[in-house]
Design a protein around this nucleic acid. Structure first.
Length: 436
DNA sequence: ACCTGCGGGGTTA
DNA sequence: TAACCCCGCAGGT
């Protein structure tokens, strides 16, 4: 649509700025929640949207004080990578989600690469004129306004739920292995001083062991089968809740947030919002101030990525060689993907991904946007969250790393690639590596 | 333990 | 003044 085709009303809706005194309230259509907002984009969400209420993003965004209680500002923390830039089997790269909490992040950076044991490195985001990409949130009336400044100049980290899931499972594993060890020992034997369950010392192959050791209290809602029933059935059960039929929202992690909370604070002032600073800055393209980052970037860009290979396959035999879902793009590599899933465990040391296609179910029916049908298209491949913390190298015909500043984005048009994912199932489709 | 939002305050241009 | 940042606190999960 050409700009001239817009009515003045439309223009108002399109031209708002998060810093405006008044924001449009005659919004005809709210946006679907964007999990990976990038570039200089704006979105208007419904105030009912749980993900928007929580100001969620799959980028690791931390709160930034802009001294403006009416506009929440968050800046991107980048991504945690292996300092040796190692590749796991299958060419996957280590792309961890930086901890939001400063202390937790420092602690995280003291950990080692789960793949090669090299130190981890935080790649800062410099996508906004050399500074981190910033996101702004403002609740106004029935809508939640979102504005993004800058274009992420780094790979996507694992998602929030993936990172949370990894932590959760690590805890469970620690607990269960502790119990297990105690049972193996004389039950009355106390732990030796200094004896710890070092996460870092666990073999990389432990994820599967962990998955079968999950206490039933934990895994019961995750798997239809008993935890001890391994491999095929578990793996298939992982995939049950995912697929192109899902909504595009982030998982509804909780339902307790009071959406009016922010309004209560914000109704204090009715006049012009004082400037939130960099909102007024001219747009700038991504800047690489660190040549090594650019090098890494270029390498990644040249190698591309394959969202299919990013998908989860647990660290054990995966017998599925085809998928019942009939993807719209039958000639694309999704078909190939399912036929190439390695059958031997050694090839499957990879992140467990949250987005297996789901032929039937739609766990998000209650959340489906009113104009859902106008947005959802059958995905060309099963994994929109192609950027788990392990990254694939093989290039994908549909998606490659664009260089910053290009029109290309980290993800393909979200309208196409979005798929819903279920938080709890996501927990089972996690990256089991014991980090953080 | 960690996430999130808030707000005080420091630094720099 | 405006942009960035760090830090600590409180409430929540």
């Amino acid at each position: 649509m050409e700009p001239n085709d817009f009515s003045s009303e439309d223009k108002e809706i399109l031209n708002w700025d998060i810093n405006d005194i008044k924001l449009p309230q005659n919004v005809k259509k709210t946006d679907r929640f964007r999990e990976w907002p990038d570039s200089y984009t704006k979105h208007i969400y419904s105030s009912e949207d749980k993900s928007a209420q929580r100001h969620l993003s799959s980028w690791a965004m931390r709160n930034t004080n802009n001294h403006n209680s009416r506009i929440l500002k968050k800046s991107c923390l980048g991504v945690v990578v292996c300092s040796r830039d190692c590749s796991a089997k299958g060419g996957r790269k280590i792309h961890l989600r930086p901890a939001i909490c400063d202390k937790a992040r420092q602690k995280q950076q003291r950990k080692r690469c789960p793949n090669c044991d090299a130190p981890l490195k935080l790649v800062p985001c410099r996508g906004h004129g050399g500074f981190p990409v910033t996101n702004f949130w403002r609740h106004e009336g029935r809508y939640i306004f979102f504005q993004s400044k800058g274009e992420h100049d780094h790979p996507k980290p694992e998602t929030k739920s993936e990172a949370e899931a990894r932590r959760t499972v690590r805890k469970v594993h620690t607990a269960s292995s502790s119990i297990s060890l105690n049972l193996k020992r004389n039950p009355e034997t106390k732990s030796l001083p200094g004896e710890t369950q070092s996460q870092g010392s666990l073999p990389l192959t432990w994820p599967f062991q962990e998955s079968v050791q999950l206490p039933s209290s934990y895994s019961g809602h995750l798997m239809a089968n008993a935890p001890q029933q391994n491999s095929l059935n578990d793996c298939l059960s992982f995939s049950k809740s995912y697929g192109p039929g899902g909504s595009t929202d982030l998982p509804d992690l909780t339902s307790t947030l009071d959406p009016t909370k922010l309004h209560e604070k914000r109704k204090l002032s009715g006049s012009r919002l004082y400037s939130s600073g960099d909102l007024l800055h001219p747009s700038t393209s991504g800047v690489y101030s660190d040549p090594s980052d650019l090098q890494t970037w270029n390498r990644n860009a040249a190698l591309g990525r394959n969202p299919l290979n990013d998908s989860c396959y647990p660290n054990y035999a995966f017998p599925v060689t085809s998928w019942p879902y009939n993807f719209s793009s039958s000639q694309n590599s999704s078909e190939q993907f399912y036929q190439q899933i390695p059958l031997e465990p050694s090839a499957a040391k990879a992140s467990c991904h949250s987005l297996w296609p789901n032929p039937g179910s739609n766990l998000y029916e209650d959340k489906v946007h009113v104009d859902f049908n106008s947005y959802v298209q059958p995905p060309a491949y099963p994994s929109p969250q192609e950027d788990s913390f392990l990254f694939p190298y093989p290039s994908h015909p549909h998606q490659q790393y664009p260089l910053p500043g290009k029109i290309g984005k980290w993800d393909v048009d979200e309208d196409v690639t979005y798929m819903g994912f279920d938080y709890y199932n996501n927990e089972m489709l996690l990256n089991f590596y014991p980090l953080r």
